[in-house]
Design a protein around this nucleic acid. Sequence first.
DNA 1: CTCCATTGATTAGCTATGCAACTATATGCG
DNA 2: CGCATATAGTTGCATAGCTAATCAATGGAG
Lengths: 138, 138
Amino acid sequence: MFDHCLYFNTTALARQLERVWTEAFKPFELTPSQAFTLRAVLEKPGMLHSELADTLKIARATATRAVDGLAARGLLERRATKRDGREWEIHPTPAAVAIKDALNDASGAVTKRLKQDLGDGVFGDFVQQARSITGKLP
Amino acid sequence: MFDHCLYFNTTALARQLERVWTEAFKPFELTPSQAFTLRAVLEKPGMLHSELADTLKIARATATRAVDGLAARGLLERRATKRDGREWEIHPTPAAVAIKDALNDASGAVTKRLKQDLGDGVFGDFVQQARSITGKLP
DNA sequence: CTCCATTGATTAGCTATGCAACTATATGCG
DNA sequence: CGCATATAGTTGCATAGCTAATCAATGGAG
């Protein structure tokens, strides 16, 4: 009924992908959101909350809660910055560093599998299109 | 950092589109989810919850809650079926029927605008790709 | 130097979604 | 018939996301 609707089909696909990546990160007992938050911070230790929000394209409030959760799990910690008392750096703990490679590998493995299932070109084109469309929206 | 990730870019786009459609349905004081639920039922009055869930590609539990909300708003009502005491038909109220065309028009207007902004071919191709990928996922 | 606007982060309150467990009704087998 | 299994829908619990409002620190204008 909504076969030609961009909103409908994109959100439906997003929900489906959520399932696939949930499965991929299950061995770590991390949700996709948690895993991507962790991967972002592991890639750039010491990033601020605002940078995290920009990187993940989520609202700052959501970034706060994501960090809360991973800090409670002992995977991230906040450190005050010297230059500005409002800012907090986000650092991975040793426990997080220990799983960094496995985490990236797990995500890479899903990507590789999907590229095979869908065709490498289709996959890449679709992702580029998605990025392009996102960039053109208000 | 996640420039080539299907999951990341699709979910980010979905969130962005959520904003666009939220704006489009604001005049009706309906969220996109509510509006699409209503449009589905208006298109096929008397559909069952399981049909609604299939149509919207959501879990049955989510369909239950969507109908709850719109019934509370006086836009939908449930009616028991004769043939099976477990089933409930979902019917639009006169208030829902009254806004049917305006609702479809509002969605059509956003689509039209986006097709102009993005290019008609790009838009259509992307939607088809999204549907195709959804179909190939587990 | 003081006050006000700005800015980084957090909190409050809400929506949509899912899975798993439950209720109630059907249905089919012995 | 009567019980066991299957099915439609609901409920409980949890996650992630958003906006708006708030808190606290900065920094500039006068």
